[in-house]
Computed example of a mutant assay.
Amino acid sequence: MQRYGAAFSLVPAVTVMVLVLGFPISEWVGMQYPVVHAEEQSNPTFQTVSSPQLNQMLQRKDFLLVNVHIPYEGEINGTDAFIAFDKIDQSLEKLPRDKNAKIVLYCRSGRMSEIAARRLSELGYNRVSHLSGGMIAWKSAGYALKDH
């Protein structure tokens, strides 16, 4: 047990060198990982809006509001289109041809709209947003939903 004591006492020092000083421990252990700079990452980008932000945006509406939730569970007043989140890339005819057009997506909880927003971003739409927390957050914030 004592022969391992010296090795374990080095763990805090090595951790400090790696975390604080940025020491490249991968060179010690022979592992190499590619360095990816932020500007080289292929992560699509989209914005997240809160319920109060969306409510304010709806006062001067200049965007397409799309409900992507399946199955239908209500909607926010001002909704322009209904497109299933998992069919968004097969329903581009319902979206503006201009990939600079503002599009706001929402669903019940925010998960489906996040998936759809990511997909639209991957397809080149660069002004896509989704409602954080979806209709659940919208209703919790005191805003009304429309039922059909």
Rank of each mutant, 00 (worst) to 15 (best):
F63D: 00
I83H: 08
I103C: 02
A81W: 01
L92F: 07
H69T: 00
D80L: 01
S113H: 09
R108C: 02
F82Y: 08
E93Y: 10
T79C: 10
S113C: 08
D86M: 01
A117E: 11
E114R: 12
Q90I: 07
T79Y: 12
V68T: 13
N77Q: 15
A116N: 02
R97M: 11
Q90V: 03
A117G: 14
F85A: 10
Y72F: 07
I83D: 10
P96H: 05
L64E: 05
I103H: 06
L92Y: 07
G78A: 04
S109C: 10
I103L: 01
D80T: 13
A84L: 04
S109N: 10
S113W: 09
E114H: 13
K87Y: 13
D89V: 15
P71V: 12
R97V: 14
R108E: 09
S91Y: 06
V104R: 05
Y106A: 04
G110P: 10
F82I: 09
R97K: 13
S91D: 13
N67K: 03
D86W: 12
M112Q: 15
L65W: 00
T79H: 04
T79G: 00
I70Y: 14
N67P: 07
L95P: 03
F63V: 02
K99M: 10
I88E: 05
S109W: 01
E114C: 08
A101E: 15
I76N: 04
Y106T: 00
C107T: 02
R108I: 05
P96W: 12
D80C: 02
I83N: 10
N77R: 15
D89K: 13
P71I: 15
H69F: 04
N100H: 09
